[in-house]
Design a binder for these strands. Structure first.
Lengths: 212, 212
DNA sequence: TGGAAAGGCTAATGCTCAGTAGCCTTGATA
DNA sequence: TATCAAGGCTACTGAGCATTAGCCTTTCCA
């Protein structure tokens, strides 16, 4: 099942309280990590006691898994939407990177937790998340490979170039702040441009953007 | 006190067993995280019981702090050594990035833990580590600023360019494997070249390296 | 109006963990 | 050879944690 197929299926519905709990857990997991977050704290964040959480959630582990699976699926969706109908491989790469980076600013907590807490998942959940992550990586590598095959891109290593592009997104999720002095668009456009220079597309002006 | 000043001071000596414990703890912290690692496991990794660790170490927290402080200091040293006596700002940037990336391959576990476990430190230790990290970031930003001031570099944002360069290193620490199909030198040289194109240095041939 | 479902609560359970107490062995030294 | 420090060990302590049990109130519909 591909990411875009998954998008066509209904994602599980949540009650408002269920949503609130998931959001509170997300913030806490991002702040102090899954292991260091207690059910008492998650409960307190939505105004109830720890044990009451279990009227809405089956376990702390499932809460983490649900957050991570959802964010991976959404990332696939965003990618699919960004490159749909774009034929030029350089355009496709730029769009993919822009979508990737924008996602990591807009949903930085989820992306952050999604990257960092993989090892806190139990085996079954980890396999599911790692599977989605690999398939996302493959989408990127596929674009780079296609560009190389068409002699539009020139890279020392397809793998290295793809990793570098993906790593930039993770970095963004780690340091981006909405009230910081770098705007979302600034980061997105700059990284989109950077992606093209990284893969050696000829004729990208300004490399890292116009001086400013 | 700067990173290079710190290098001049004697770093605390450790007994062989102390070293072994630190190494075992490092591996476990990297693998499953600080919170999820027990003193029993650290002990078992060096052939003793958990409580016996306390003949060599004052606490699990201190073990983490010692690992993180040492790696930050070493990173400063490596940087200082790499750029010492290099006058051309583009050369300096390339050398700094190469040293940064090489460090993140050679000492990936420490670098990985150093980045990921900051939130597991108590307040005092965290402040010390964050302080060293900021000063390291400033060194990078300083090089980029200098290149921009000299009109050698052309970037949309000094901060963004510096963050991107540092983030690539962290990415390497996350996925690099000695037995993988990307060699240390390959990554180092490619990323050194990436760095120059990222800051818009004119005349960098091949951008992301020769096709291969 | 009555009864059940939803969703709170407190108390309890059972487990795990970091760290301490106190004991024992070994090996070097005086 | 007597002593002492180093460095193991087991048993214990005290705390914290996820989760369950069981109870109570509110709300909503038959």
């Amino acid at each position: 099942m591909s990411g875009s197929d998954r998008a066509l299926l209904a994602r599980p519905q949540l009650t408002p309280r269920g949503r609130a709990i998931r959001a509170a857990a997300l913030t806490l997991f991002a702040e102090r990590g899954y292991e260091a977050t207690t059910t008492t704290e998650i409960g307190a964040a939505v105004g109830i006691r720890g044990p009451s959480l279990y009227k809405h959630v089956s376990s702390k582990q499932d809460l983490l898994a649900a957050i991570m699976l959802e964010v991976m699926d959404d990332l696939h969706d965003v990618h699919a939407l960004a490159v749909a109908g774009v034929d030029d491989v350089a355009d496709r790469l730029r769009r993919a990177v822009e979508a990737h980076v924008r996602f990591h600013t807009r949903r930085r907590l989820e992306a952050f937790v999604g990257n960092r807490e993989i090892r806190s998942l139990n085996e079954a959940n980890r396999a599911a998340v790692v599977d989605r992550r690999s398939s996302y990586e493959r989408l990127f590598r596929g674009i780079v490979e296609e560009g190389v095959a068409a002699s539009r891109f020139h890279v020392a290593s397809v793998k290295l170039a793809s990793y570098a592009l993906l790593d930039l997104g993770m970095g963004v999720a780690a340091w981006y702040r909405e009230d910081g002095d770098l705007s979302e668009d600034e980061i997105v456009y700059t990284y989109g441009r950077f992606a093209l220079t990284l893969v050696g597309v000829a004729g990208v002006a300004g490399v890292a953007g116009v001086a400013g």
